[in-house]
Each structure stands twice: as structure tokens, then as C-alpha cells.
Nucleic acid binder design. Structure first.
Lengths: 138, 138
DNA sequence: CTGGCTGCAAATCTTTTGCATCCTG
DNA sequence: CAGGATGCAAAAGATTTGCAGCCAG
């Protein structure tokens, strides 16, 4: 049995064709796609697909820790199926998001925490990507 | 002349009462307010205020580097008038955002950058705030 | 005075909801 | 076969736009 299906089954949620199609699109996807991108892609081979279903499926997947909702784009939700700890390089010109596979343990002095229990961190590095730097230097 | 007005004048944009009221609300505000919160507060003493104006003013202020738009809340835009480098502690229970006044210079190995020119970073620390930890431990 | 700004309403976009129907387990 | 999932349409929220009238510089 395919890995994807095996992983899906382990969630103990109904395996519908729509969910499989979305999961299939997300598998290994490094584009941090928006709902719109997911809908457009999946509905090509699944014309009856509705936005409501995409939202439903994504919310389910987030709840089951299969994908993460990321808040880098203030205009819309984006989703990341890459669940290992990692960070993002965000190009301020083209808004592209590049994964950075590293794990930083950043110490914050007790007195700055004000009783906050630290559980993890996510770093957004911003700058200019190679392609954009190549284009024009304004 | 008040500091606020002085700062505003230096932007060389028209100083309207609406803009002053919004700037006044934002001055020193550590709540990372949404457009709705800003609108609700400012329209109390300025009943004719419209959402469009709040959006217009905020976009202008962002463009002039007076406030930052922050992408921590995936559901709506939030704004931060605190322009110095700082990071955020985000409570995963109540979603409160606490400023962390530190400056981390995080080195990323050349080979991970893939030609990306690093310009800065913003860290989102997540965990549970003191109040929420006090409440219930589920 | 004049160009930029405001206020209003309508448009657009994103996300949610209600509900009848469908289909996986 | 039952309960959860889908599809559709409508609603709710967030943000933008067009435009006439206003006012700060």
C-alpha cells in the first residue's frame, strides 16, 4: 500500500477521494500553497470540488497534524505539509518562501519571559532571493 | 509641539484629525491591534470614521515605516507601532502576543542560503503565557 | 486653491455555515 | 446503515475601490 494512504489511514478519518487528491497535491509540496492554489490544482482533475471542501479538508488535516497553517502571508492562509521543525526565508521582493532546514535552540533569559512557558519557535528570515537579486538592484 | 505631531510632520504627509487620532491610539500601544480594534476605539471619539479611512491611514503609515503589519494572526491583519527590532511570544491558548525586546543575530551557513541575501529576522516564540498556565493544565 | 484625504456604498475576496445528499467504514 | 464528508448556495468577515465632496498646506 502506498505510503500516503498508509499515513492517512493511521489518522482514523474517512479516506475520501477528495481528501486523497488534496493530500496527494500537498505531499512533498514546498510551495506553501494557499487555499486558492490548492483548489485550482485539485479541481482540475476533480471538477466538482468546492472551496468548502478544501477548507474542510485543510482544517481536518491541521487538526490531525498533517499540515501546518503558516501566517507569513497577511492576505490569506497558506499551508505547509512539511511538519519537521524548520524555518523560512522570505523574499521581500517576490514574496517567495524558501524552507530552511535547521533547528535553532534560542535561549531567552528568564526575566524576559514573564512566566511564559516556551515551547518552540519559528524564525522568519527576510531578505532578497537569488533570482530577485539577479533581476534589478533598485 | 508634541512629539507625536513632530514625528508625523516629518513624514511630509497631510496631518488630518483622523490620522492624528489613529496615530494617537497606536502610540505606545503594545496590543498589536487589528483594524477592527483600531476602528472601534477611534470611532468612539470620531463617530464619522469609516473602515476605509482606517485602512487608508494604516497603509500609509506602513508605507512610511511608522507601523509594521504583522502576520501572526492568520485571520486578520494586525499592526505594531513598535518599530525597533524585537520578537514575539505568542500564547497558543489565548493568542496573546507579548513583545520580546532582544536582538538575536542568527547565523545561517552559506550553503543553506542558496544565494539569498539575509536582511533580518523575526522570531515567533510559541508557548503558554503565565495567565493561561495558571488557569487550567489540560 | 488644489491635490490629497475622507466617507459612503458597492464590489471583491476569503472563509464559514446550513443543509440535503452521498458514501466510507 | 450510520455518521461523517461533500457540494452548493448563501452568509459573514475582511479588505479594496470609485467617486463626490472636503480641507490641510
Amino acid at each position: 500500500m502506498e505510503n500516503r494512504i498508509k499515513k492517512y489511514k493511521s489518522l482514523k478519518i474517512k479516506l475520501t477521494p477528495q481528501r486523497l487528491a488534496i493530500l496527494n497535491y500537498l505531499e512533498g509540496n514546498k510551495m506553501h500553497p494557499s487555499v486558492e492554489q490548492i483548489f485550482k490544482y485539485v479541481s482540475r482533475r476533480f471538477p466538482s470540488m468546492s472551496y468548502a471542501t478544501v477548507y474542510n479538508v485543510l482544517n481536518t488535516l491541521v487538526k490531525h497534524n498533517v499540515v501546518k497553517e503558516i501566517s507569513i502571508d497577511p492576505d490569506k492562509k497558506r499551508f505547509d505539509p512539511y511538519m519537521s521543525t524548520h524555518h523560512h526565508l522570505v523574499c521581500i521582493k517576490c514574496r517567495k518562501i524558501i524552507d530552511l532546514d535547521m533547528d535553532f535552540s534560542i535561549g531567552v533569559p528568564e526575566d524576559k519571559l514573564a512566566g511564559f512557558t516556551m515551547m518552540g519557535n519559528h524564525i522568519e528570515f527576510y531578505g532578497v532571493c537569488a533570482q530577485c537579486r539577479g533581476k534589478d538592484k533598485d
